[in-house]
Amino acid sequence: MIVLDNVTKVFPSKSGEVKAVSNVNLKVKKGEIHGVIGYSGAGKSTLIRCVNLLEKPTSGNVYIQGVETTALSADKLRAVRKNIGMIFQGFNLLKTATVFDNIAIPLKLLGFTKEEVHERVEKYLTIVDLADKKSAYPNQLSGGQKQRVAIARALAQEPDILLSDEATSALDPETTDAILDLLLKINEELGITILLITHEMNVIQKICDNVTVLEKGEVIEQGTAVQLFANPKNKTTQRFLNTISQRRLSPSLISQLNLDGTVVRLTFIGENTGQPLLAQLTKQFDVQPNILTANIIELKNDIIGNLVIHVTGDQATIEQALQFLRQQNVGIERLEGN
């Protein structure tokens, strides 16, 4: 659906060239929700604007539904963009226009008839649950309602692709969850492919199928959401995960707790999260596991359980116990000294 092939974007500046995006390769499959996460300045917004060529890449190729777009004429590019909706952090609503007109005006500019405009506005206001707000003005709406209007406006053109540029970062947690639920509904019921950028790990957790981690304009890690949450390879990804799940104990805490045995982090995926494996451990091996931290992360398509435990006993027996856990497909990471 979307393919970025070695995309680079360079901006000139007084101090020299700034490479905002560097040799990015990215594939978004039809019907999936793909998240791009990174800290401020990672190049996320530049990257997503390269998808619909609001920013033309300095080098590399962009393919939308199999069409290479970077060399298209202006007319052909406009035709491609009609199939790409976009929502922004700042909503971008016309303050002097009603909710109805904010959605209708772009349709009128595209040449839709009055009847078609009315039908589509009513349809998508119903989908975003704002049918009773069509005569309201943006200053009469909450932040979440404004974003719903922006989503309805993007959907009214009935695109196959929806781009989301930090669409929830200006919203409170409860409103963010409601908007994420709406994006899931759009993806599942309308079959729209969604590419979103965010710096919030809870957004990735709740709705994404696949994830790309960006740092200093470069891709540093890619994979399914389950893969990244269960076994992050890069330190930046690990720091992101630490914002929603305590993955590590500091060396000072380990020292304060006088943990002189083995400290490990256990990762359980799917069915394993409900298995009493620690109970089996104490029955089969002469070891004593003590739970230090524990949580369960519910992803869009799976469940991941995390335990940090302190295990005491004979070292050889501890190794046998850990091997038993590995055989049960439990991920194990030693945390001594971390």
Rank of each mutant, 00 (worst) to 15 (best):
Q315H: 12
Q320T: 12
Q280H: 11
N301L: 13
N306Q: 15
Q288D: 05
E298M: 11
A294L: 07
L281Q: 06
N306A: 12
N272L: 10
Q323N: 15
Q328G: 01
Q284Y: 11
N329Y: 09
L281C: 07
V311T: 03
A294N: 07
I291S: 02
T282V: 14
N295S: 13
A294E: 07
G313K: 01
K283F: 08
E298Q: 14
V330S: 00
I309Q: 04
K300V: 05
V308Y: 00
K283V: 10
L281H: 01
Q327Y: 06
A316W: 06
T282K: 13
L322K: 11
K300A: 05
I304D: 04
R326T: 11
G313Y: 03
L278C: 08
T317L: 08
F324T: 09
D314A: 08
L322N: 06
L277C: 02
N329K: 14
F285T: 03
T282D: 07
L322A: 04
F324D: 13
L325G: 01
D314C: 07
Q320D: 15
I297D: 00
Q284G: 10
L325D: 00
T293V: 04
K300Y: 12
L292E: 01
T282M: 14
Q315E: 10
Q315I: 12
D302M: 08
T312W: 05
Q327E: 14
Q275C: 10
I309Y: 07
E319W: 06
V330L: 02
I303Y: 13
V308F: 01
Q320H: 12
A316G: 09
Q320W: 06
Q323Y: 10
R326V: 07
H310D: 05
Q323D: 14
Q323L: 11
G305K: 06
V287M: 00
F324L: 08
T312N: 08
P276Y: 05
D314H: 07
L277F: 01
L322F: 11
N295I: 05
N301W: 15
N295P: 02
T273S: 08
G274K: 12
I303Q: 15
I303M: 06
T312I: 15
Q288I: 13
L281W: 02
T273F: 09
A316R: 15
A279V: 14
A279D: 12
Q320P: 14
R326F: 09
H310F: 05
R326S: 12
T312E: 06
T293C: 02
N272H: 11
Q284V: 11
F285S: 08
T317G: 06
N295T: 11
Q284H: 12
I296R: 09
G305L: 03
P289S: 03
Q328K: 12
A294P: 00
T293G: 00
A294M: 04
Q275L: 15
D302S: 15
E319I: 14
R326Q: 13
I318T: 01
F285Q: 01
F285D: 02
N329D: 14
L325K: 03
A321T: 07
P289V: 02
N295F: 04
G305E: 04
L292C: 06
Q288M: 12
I296Q: 09
G305M: 02
N306K: 13
N272P: 07
G305H: 03
